[in-house]
Computed example of a mutant assay.
Amino acid sequence: MKLYGSSTSPFVRRLRVFLSGLDHEFININIYEEEGRSILKSINPALKIPMLVDGEKVIFDSRIIFQYLNQAYVKDAWTINDDNNLTLINAANDSYVELFLLEKSGIDTSQDALFFNLQHERIQSTLDVLNTSASQGSFDTWNFASISLFCLIDWALFRSLNTFDAYPHLYTFYQNNLDRPIVKSTDPRD
């Protein structure tokens, strides 16, 4: 089984953490360089990471990869609440990534424009709900939803997109999981 992606992607990192203990190979590619783009294009027509190759199966998108891995190998209990939390995490993560890429392209995302305003609103709305959920213990179990939340927070901090001062329960959750060996070994700063 091979997981392709970037060591700095929060969507890839969540799967690297989830795959801990399962036999797999992580193939780190830079999708912005010619060799990485070539690998990406040869496997995933959506031109997105992560992507998983398991024998003859090729699976795109972190959520679908998780579902496949959970059904085929891990078999963790998964609830509608976990699904809803993952939807919120993905929404915030998508908005952060879009804003980050725009800023890297030299576009000021703080300007008053519909697209930017919608992304900022989505981030605030989802983080408000996730902060409340964290205060109620929704992420006390280390499962794919909590792994994904951790990777979202860590990536936003890594990219200086948020301090999480306004979200104390999310920041406490983050701090409580920093010492996990798999979290340390997948740190995008290394």
Score class of each variant (00 low, 15 high):
residue 76 D to R: 06
residue 3 L to H: 01
residue 64 I to N: 10
residue 83 D to T: 15
residue 182 I to R: 03
residue 24 H to M: 04
residue 151 C to S: 04
residue 95 S to G: 07
residue 162 N to S: 12
residue 164 F to H: 04
residue 4 Y to C: 00
residue 6 S to L: 10
residue 171 Y to R: 12
residue 113 A to Q: 13
residue 175 Q to F: 08
residue 188 P to W: 05
residue 101 L to S: 10
residue 126 T to N: 09
residue 36 G to K: 03
residue 143 N to Y: 06
residue 183 V to E: 02
residue 91 A to M: 11
residue 154 D to P: 00
residue 18 F to P: 02
residue 101 L to G: 05
residue 35 E to V: 13
residue 38 S to P: 00
residue 145 A to N: 01
residue 47 L to N: 14
residue 101 L to T: 11
residue 141 T to D: 05
residue 104 K to H: 08
residue 80 I to S: 15
residue 153 I to P: 02
residue 71 Q to V: 08
residue 39 I to W: 07
residue 45 P to F: 13
residue 23 D to S: 13
residue 103 E to P: 07
residue 70 N to Q: 09
residue 184 K to M: 10
residue 16 R to P: 00
residue 186 T to A: 01
residue 113 A to W: 09
residue 53 V to A: 05
residue 146 S to L: 03
residue 96 Y to H: 06
residue 81 N to D: 15
residue 58 V to A: 14
residue 93 N to A: 15
residue 129 V to W: 07
residue 84 N to A: 15
residue 13 R to V: 01
residue 151 C to D: 01
residue 124 Q to G: 08
residue 169 H to Q: 11
residue 83 D to W: 09
residue 67 Q to R: 12
residue 28 N to K: 10
residue 55 G to P: 02
residue 121 E to V: 07
residue 51 M to W: 00
residue 118 L to P: 02
residue 136 Q to N: 14
residue 135 S to L: 08
residue 120 H to V: 06
residue 27 I to H: 05
residue 180 R to S: 04
residue 162 N to I: 02
residue 113 A to H: 14
residue 34 E to A: 14
residue 108 D to M: 10
residue 70 N to S: 07
residue 179 D to F: 10
residue 102 L to E: 08
residue 61 D to W: 05
residue 186 T to C: 06
